[in-house]
Amino acid sequence: MSERTSNQVDGFEPKIVAFLCNWCSYAGADAAGISRLELPPNILPVRVMCSGRVSIEMVLKALMAGADGVLVLGCHIGDCHYGSGNHRTVKRIPLLRRLMTYMGIEPDRLRLDWVSGAEAGRFAKITTEFVEAVRALGPLSLPLREGL
């Protein structure tokens, strides 16, 4: 999907900020830890009450403050603790991915997915996949990142 050719840098370890919903994805991450699944160390988890809480400000600020990728994980559609919080997320994040592309940032630096409290394996799979995807994109080098 990326339009930019791989600009892999030797020894580059991507920094990933992951916003995890309190009710499903954070529990899923916990379960992955308890199950001793192998998880990439690049993830910096931020617990939020709902994936619907993840505003675009939070995503942009993470990218500008030094993250190479942002992962947003929430409950599956239909399972939201608040009923419809993730309905907003599923509209917001794809729209932001489009706007990011338009402004010249690879959309694959932002990923939304669903992880329930029981899906420890899925959490490990998604995080590993995402870290590798961002690793392939290389560091996010924007003049935007002279610190915000």
Binding site: R4, M103, G104
Partner: peptide, 8 residues
């Protein structure tokens, strides 16, 4: 992509 970034 690069040109879009530069443009904006």
């Amino acid at each position: 992509l690069e040109e879009r970034l530069a443009y904006w």
